[in-house]
Each structure stands twice: as structure tokens, then as C-alpha cells.
Amino acid sequence: MTDGGSEGTFVLTSEPQHLARLRDWLREELTRHEVDGREQFGLQVAVGEICSNSIKHAYAGLGGKPIHVSVRWGEDRVVIEVRDFGRKFDPELYRPPDLEALPEGGVGLHIAKQFVDEFSFDVTQEQGTRWILVKYLPGAEPKSRTP
């Protein structure tokens, strides 16, 4: 499963119809690294939710805007970064969904977080948000995980 240091990047624009191609690319990338089907599904959902979030919020639904997805393989983990160049994510405005209230929206980040081991974002760039998703590979020792 390990392939230390290898990296792949997929660039899409901010139309929802490109999300299926992104999932296909990610599936191939994960299959090549022997990630099993259940984990593949989770990572496809997580990355898809982040990209949908960029389309809806960073770019306010406008098409033609760039989103970069990169996958970096370490010895014990895969790190996936999603980068948009639109309006920055503002954690002050984010409200976790009230799942008991049957929300019709606003659950995308909640879902994405469930499928990864570490979830963070970086808004220190001049434009946009860099989302960082980390998933530890099966057999990775907990002690090797960063706190």
C-alpha cells in the first residue's frame, strides 16, 4: 500500500458535472494504491463534499473557476488537499448542523469529517481556502500519527 512521496493532481472547474470525473480519477488513484472499496467510497464522498462546498460557497455557484485536488502518499497515510481560489472559508460563520432538525443543507462538511482521520483548512493564502484531509492507511500504528 505504501508509495512514499508519490503525488497526483487533478484540476477541475467549478461546474457540478465535473465532480463525477474527479471521483473517477480519485478511484483510480486509490485503486492503484490498493485502498479498499469502503475506504475509497469514504474518500470520494469527503473530497466531493469539499469540492461541492467550494462550488457553492467559495465561488457562489459560478462556473469556470479552478479547483485543484492533490493526493500525496506517505508511508502510513494519504493526504488529500483541495484548493480553491474564491471566497475564503470563515469558521466564525460555520454552524455545525442540527441533525435532529432534518436539515436540507449544511451537512457536507459534517459528512466529510466522518470519513477522514484529520481534517483542517488553511486560509493564509491571498485567495481561497486549502482544505487538508488525512486518512491513515490500514495497519498504520497510532503512535505514528501526529497529535
Partner: peptide, 16 residues
């Protein structure tokens, strides 16, 4: 074989 939060939201809205 795949559903995301947009799909879920659509089903919840229709159910309501």
C-alpha cells in the same frame, strides 16, 4: 452507488 449532501438534502426536502 453514491450520494452526497446535495442528494440527501433533495430527499429530505421531498419527504417534508
Amino acid at each position: 452507488g453514491y450520494i452526497d449532501s446535495s442528494g440527501l438534502g433533495t430527499l429530505v426536502a421531498a419527504m417534508k
